[in-house]
């Protein structure tokens, strides 16, 4: 039974939340999109607006006429996200399974060995020197895969999950002559599907949004990830002009004024848009990843 006062309270709360969502969250994203469709001179004269004074598709036209850099970045980003996440989840899953087994006599040693990396590390500079001077991974595709391949926190989360799988299931599989890897693949993996899905999605999001690896290790423009390409475009005037110039080879470049501002935002839409549609569909997995509370050693 609702009283008059409760009804009023509902209305007021809903209005407040709608205002916050609309102006705080939806409008900023909408301005990114409308900016990319704004005519450049109107943009410079009138500033960033929700509804542009003059619309133009020029930014997208230029972008798609010479999309080389963007396609390279898309390919690098997709490959490193998919391959990296697959290898990462596989090796973390195998290791988490091993240290979740009571039969594994070294499980304490291995757990401690891994947990310690969560507490202490060499830091950026020694890691950089190792990767570039000793392992020769600077400016290679491989650095994208290797960077943050395993993570102590995710590993412990997985182990906690595996511990809830009854030991008797594993024992009976062993009676039937199953090897450890087979048990992992046939029993643990299907039963722990939610854990694998959660860790995979978290890893995928991290890798998809990664720009740090390119910032530190990559000089070769064809090995940039999407997010780093975006960063260079935002910061570097020369860079966006070079991209614009690639698409207007026939016109006199001296006379050509690239719509750099709207092109930047068109790039954001093309680079960040698709995944912003996809990730929210898996929202519950991200929430679960956050609420996997008891992480005990």
């Amino acid at each position: 039974m609702r009283t008059q006062a409760e009804l009023r309270q509902q209305v007021v709360l809903n209005i407040i939340l709608w205002i916050v969502c609309l102006f705080g969250f939806i409008v900023p994203l909408v301005i990114v999109i409308t900016t990319s469709f704004t005519e450049e001179n109107s943009l410079i004269a009138n500033g960033y607006r929700i509804i542009p004074r003059e619309t133009s598709l020029e930014a997208y036209r230029l972008l798609f006429r010479a999309p080389g850099k963007m396609i390279d970045a898309y390919i690098v980003t997709i490959l490193q996200s998919v391959i990296g996440t697959f290898i990462s989840v596989l090796i973390m899953g195998l290791c988490a399974y091993a240290i979740s087994r009571k039969a594994f006599r070294m499980r304490r040693t291995v757990s401690l060995f891994i947990l310690f990396t969560f507490l202490f590390g060499g830091g950026l500079v020694p890691t950089y020197i190792l990767n570039t001077q000793y392992l020769g991974l600077g400016d290679t595709f491989l650095i994208h895969i290797v960077h943050n391949l395993a993570n102590a926190f995710y590993l412990i989360v997985m182990r906690t999950f595996f511990k809830n799988i009854p030991e008797s299931l594993i024992e009976s599989a062993k009676m039937d002559g199953g090897g450890e890897f087979l048990i992992f693949a046939r029993i643990i993996f299907p039963l722990a599907m939610p854990a694998f899905a959660t860790i995979s999605l978290l890893g995928l999001l991290d890798r998809w949004n990664n720009w740090f690896t390119s910032l530190v290790y990559i000089r070769d423009e064809s090995l940039y990830t999407l997010q780093f390409l975006l960063q260079r475009i935002l910061r570097d005037f020369e860079f966006i002009n070079a991209i614009a110039a690639e698409s207007v080879t026939n016109i006199d470049i001296q006379l050509f004024q690239a719509p750099t501002e709207s092109m930047r935002y068109a790039m954001v839409v093309v680079a960040a848009g698709p995944m912003l549609m996809v990730f929210p569909l898996f929202q519950r997995y991200f929430v679960r990843g956050l609420t996997v509370g008891s992480v005990k050693g």
């Binding site: 990396t117 060499g122 500079v125 020694p126 392992l135």
Partner: peptide, 20 residues
């Protein structure tokens, strides 16, 4: 089964500590 991860942590987490 645990070895790939152990190697990873050794190379990319323990070796850099020597660089300190």
């Amino acid at each position: 089964l645990a070895l790939p991860c152990i190697i990873y942590f050794f190379v990319w987490h323990y070796l850099p500590m020597a660089g300190l």
